[in-house]
Computed example of a mutant assay.
Amino acid sequence: MNKEPLRHGPHHDSEFHHHHSHAATSAHPGEHHLLAIEDLSVGFEMYEPDASYFSAGKIIAPVVHDLNLSVHKGEVLALVGASGSGKTVLADAIMGFWQPNEIVSGTIWFDGERLDAGRIQALRGNGLSMVPQSVSNLDPLMPIGRQVIGAPRGATRRERRASLEERRPRMRSLFAQYGLGADVECMYPHELSGGMLRRVLLLCALMDDPRLIIADEPTPGLDLDLALRAIGDLRRFADAGGGVLLITHDIELALRCADRVAIFHAGTVVEETSTASFASPDRLDHSFSKALWHALPEHDFFNSPDISSKRR
């Protein structure tokens, strides 16, 4: 495995390169991105669905193909695509959550280092964290504090107990920073509101001081005020120097908080650009991106033929 830093070469931060344009704040310390995905394809090996039981051969059902994506330090990149389009499959592929019948190809670089399966596993919880889509990922029978602290570490009972105590101050600091009272530590998930549960999921990701957070649909079921608050938490993390890949179907929400937007359509990213480009369809390159602009409420839900012709 090549462990040398990925160098994209000297360039101005405003230049179009590596399949994307930039926001005003995009920067490339060390001449590389925090996350760079190149030519990623994900498919699932399965039996032919229409063949008879005894004669069915195996096929590869593609979900993601030839995808390129980059996240800079200090920014929120929103990956916007329809529900059920394969965005979660992409998130799981980046995190290394692969199914036995899953076939993944392409290259993933993290902070200049090319990753293999073993390195991705080592980075989970040690630089790379994920905020999952559903609050059902929280254990209903375990107090919130124990879930945020995480599994104890160590070979003996004493070492494991010591590891929990070492992590407790950071947990309490995060509780205070993100507006959760000390009493939440002893509460159970059913005792918290939906907005508080979303915040707990974020704190679980923040416990290990990550450099990149992948947030997979972090706002479903929340009203606008709570959704903006949840996104504001991610914005705060990015403003402190981290990177965020926000996966969402809500382009309006994405445009409120993200520095750049990647439009996910038909299994790949068709355009990756600054949110400022959505000020006018003339500043967008791909026809599907232009169609999304026209479909926004403030643009009167214009019935664009580009959207209807590209629906699956």
Rank of each mutant, 00 (worst) to 15 (best):
F237H: 05
R256T: 13
T273G: 01
D225T: 15
G221M: 09
E252I: 11
S289F: 01
L246I: 03
C257I: 15
G232W: 04
F237S: 03
A262D: 01
R256A: 15
C257T: 14
A238M: 07
G243A: 09
D233C: 15
F278W: 14
S280L: 12
A230K: 05
L292Y: 08
A295S: 14
A227C: 12
D239I: 13
A240C: 09
L212K: 00
A266P: 02
D282Y: 08
G267T: 04
P281W: 02
D282P: 04
G232D: 10
A230V: 15
A262H: 03
A230I: 15
L253Y: 02
L245M: 10
I214F: 00
S277V: 09
H265W: 05
S274P: 10
W293E: 04
F237P: 01
H286E: 08
L226D: 09
F264D: 00
S280R: 14
R236C: 12
A258M: 10
F278N: 06
S289P: 10
L245T: 08
I231L: 15
K290Q: 15
F278T: 08
W293G: 04
G243I: 05
P218M: 03
I247C: 05
A291M: 06
F288D: 03
E272T: 12
G243D: 04
E272Q: 14
L284A: 08
G221I: 12
C257Q: 06
S280C: 12
A240N: 13
D225M: 13
R260W: 10
H249Q: 12
R229K: 14
T268S: 09
L296A: 10
A291F: 08
T268D: 02
C257Y: 04
R256M: 12
G232T: 12
A240Q: 14
A295Q: 05
A227P: 09
T273I: 08
D239G: 09
G267I: 01
G242T: 11
A291N: 04
L246K: 07
A279V: 12
K290D: 02
D250A: 10
S289N: 08
D233R: 04
P220E: 03
L255E: 02
I263R: 00
R256F: 09
A254R: 02
A291V: 07
P218R: 00
A276K: 13
